[in-house]
Every structure is written in structure tokens, then in C-alpha cells.
């Protein structure tokens, strides 16, 4: 395992921690516990006394500290990749990820300064997931297994499912973020029924958003079941079957957490775990999509090109 891959993995893990911390901020309603930005109660962010990280400040300022750390790590990774990786598209992806995290920080500041307007907060939540997927992808692309290649997967059905599934998961996450930032998380207070019925007997904006998230949960679960079922029925490659079982496991946990979030009336721990598990589900589905479409990448394992690539030393002078 190369050091750059280790660092990319650390960045991806740190980003998941950041997403989780963001979930804690909203779950504890601490988004405005620090009213200024980029300073914290007038202090430069990194000089804010730890003794003052009390109440909601602990969550909000903690989120900012983790975010800043992740941003610095992303700068480091982008520079590292740009100087050592011979694949131009990977270098571009690293800089794209850096631009995404810069934009993400800006959105975070705007949403604080404007008292958490729902569209900005939802965009902040949505971009967080994209950035997380970018870091996970970079970790994959810097791995030895990716460079070696997993071989060609000639399955057009799986190819479509592997694109459809992460797209559906992401749309579901956006609906969930909208529900979270419009305070519609308990608009339908019972589960599995909706006001005692299959379909809500009355409608409002929050009820519609909440119900859409429930419908989305069913759709995503079915999509993952179809993807995983297809893999298990038609493929024996351990890489794919592991993805199938992982997807099934994560979606089961996520569905359960969603139900418990309602039944517990948004218990902070459960509510936050629901956010983190949703991000994990998206990342796993994106990874599966990348692996399934591996042959479409420029560094796909074709004998001649693999040999050629292996012959090029990974030095700045050799960057293409």
C-alpha cells in the first residue's frame, strides 16, 4: 500500500467523520451556536479556547475544526497527486475535489451568516456528499488494486444498475437533507404507518417532503436489492459479491435507523447515525459503479497499456 493511498484513505475517513459531525450539528440544533464566520466569537478559528467549547459550540465549532483539517488535507493530497500521479484525469479529479471542499466551506459560512436558509443548507449537505464521494474515489484510484485492474465486467444490466443505484441514493439523501433543514423530520410522527394509514390522510409541505423520503427509502432499498441480487445471481467474483453483501447490510442498517429516528423522536445519536450511514451507502454504491465501469477508464488493464504504464516511473518529470 502506497503512502499516497494511505493518505487518501485517511482523508476519506476524515471526511466521513466531518459528515457525521455535520449531522451532529443539525441533530442538536447547534447550527447557529457560533453566530460569526469565519471567526468564532471573534477568535481566529484555531485560537478559540477549548474551555469555551460548551453546549452547541462544541458541535458547531468542532465541525468547523474538522472541516478545516479536511480542507488542509485535501490541499495536501491535491498537491501530492499533481506531483506524483501520471494520470491526468486523476490529477484533475483531485483539484476538482479541492474546489468542491472550498465551495463547501463557503456554503457553510453563508448558511451561518444568513441564519440557515434551507436552500443553502440543503446545498451544503448535498455538496458534502459529493465531496465525500470524490475523496473515496481518489482513495480507490490511488490503490494498487485499481492500478492492477479488476478485469473486464461485461454485464450491461449491472452496468446500468451500478449507475442507477448511486443516483437514487443521492436523490434520497437530498430529500432527506431537505426534510432535515425544513424541520419536517417528524411531520409524520408514526412508523411504519403515516397517521395510521398507508398514505397520509392530509397533506402539507412538510408531510409531502417526509413522505417522499419514505417512498425514496423503499425505492432505494429495491434498487439495492436488485443490484445485489443480480450480482449474487450472476457473478462469482469476490470483489463484486463483497459489494453486494455490503450494500445489503448498509441499506438494512440505514432503513432501520430511519425508522428509529422517527420512533425515537429524533434521538440525537440515531439521527446522526442515519446521516453517516446514508453517506456510507452512497460511497459504497459509487465505488461499485466505478469498479463495474473500470474498463472505461484510460488506465484500464489492457495488456499493452498496463505494461507501458508500469514502465513509467512515478516522478514529477514523468507526469503526463
Amino acid at each position: 500500500m502506497t503512502w499516497i493511498h494511505r493518505f487518501a484513505l485517511l482523508l476519506a475517513a476524515s471526511t466521513l467523520l466531518l459528515v457525521t459531525a455535520g449531522g451532529l450539528v443539525t441533530s442538536t440544533d447547534s447550527g447557529l451556536a457560533v453566530p460569526d464566520w469565519p471567526n468564532t466569537y471573534g477568535y481566529f478559528m484555531f485560537s478559540f479556547p477549548l474551555s469555551k467549547m460548551v453546549g452547541g459550540i462544541f458541535y458547531e465549532h468542532g465541525h468547523r475544526l474538522i472541516a478545516s483539517t479536511v480542507g488542509l488535507m485535501m490541499i495536501g493530497l491535491a498537491i501530492w497527486i499533481s506531483r506524483t500521479d501520471d494520470r491526468r484525469w486523476v490529477r484533475r479529479l483531485a483539484w476538482t475535489a479541492l474546489a468542491a471542499v472550498v465551495l463547501q466551506g463557503t456554503l457553510g459560512g453563508i448558511t451561518v451568516l444568513y441564519f440557515l436558509p434551507a436552500p443553502i443548507s440543503v446545498a451544503h449537505a448535498g455538496l458534502a456528499q459529493i465531496f465525500f464521494c470524490l475523496t473515496v474515489s481518489l482513495a480507490l484510484f490511488t490503490s494498487a488494486s485499481w492500478r492492477e485492474g479488476a478485469g473486464v465486467i461485461g454485464d450491461p444490466i449491472l452496468a446500468r444498475l451500478a449507475i442507477l443505484t448511486p443516483a437514487l441514493v443521492y436523490v434520497q439523501i437530498l430529500i432527506g437533507a431537505t426534510m432535515r433543514h425544513t424541520d419536517a423530520g417528524l411531520a409524520i410522527p408514526d412508523f411504519p404507518w403515516a397517521f395510521g394509514r398507508l398514505i397520509p390522510p392530509e397533506w402539507s409541505g412538510p408531510i409531502a417532503i417526509h413522505f417522499a423520503h419514505r417512498v425514496g427509502a423503499v425505492v432505494v432499498t429495491l434498487a439495492i436489492a436488485a443490484t445485489a441480487g443480480h450480482i449474487l445471481a450472476h457473478h462469482r467474483r469476490s470483489t463484486l459479491t463483497r459489494f453486494a453483501w455490503l450494500l445489503l447490510g448498509v441499506v438494512t442498517v440505514q432503513f432501520t435507523l430511519g425508522a428509529l429516528t422517527v420512533l425515537s423522536e429524533r434521538h440525537v445519536g440515531i439521527n446522526t447515525a442515519h446521516v453517516a450511514t446514508g453517506a456510507t451507502l452512497l460511497a459504497v454504491s459509487v465505488l461499485l459503479g466505478l469498479v463495474v465501469h473500470r474498463r472505461r477508464f484510460a488506465d484500464a488493464p489492457q495488456p499493452v497499456r498496463v505494461d507501458s504504464s508500469a514502465a513509467i516511473p512515478a516522478t514529477p518529470g514523468a507526469v503526463r
Binding site: G126, L174, G289, H293
Partner: peptide
């Protein structure tokens, strides 16, 4: 080519970006 590969690598994020309003 490399350009198409980069686009494909980004496809998940780009598709999802369209839906992010947002």
C-alpha cells in the same frame, strides 16, 4: 482517452450535482 476517463470518474458526482440545488 484520458479526458473521457476523467469525465467518467467524475460522473457520479456530476450527475448528483445536477440534483443539488441544490
Amino acid at each position: 482517452d484520458a479526458r473521457k476517463s476523467w469525465l467518467l470518474a467524475s460522473i457520479m458526482a456530476l450527475v448528483l450535482t445536477v440534483a443539488c440545488g441544490g
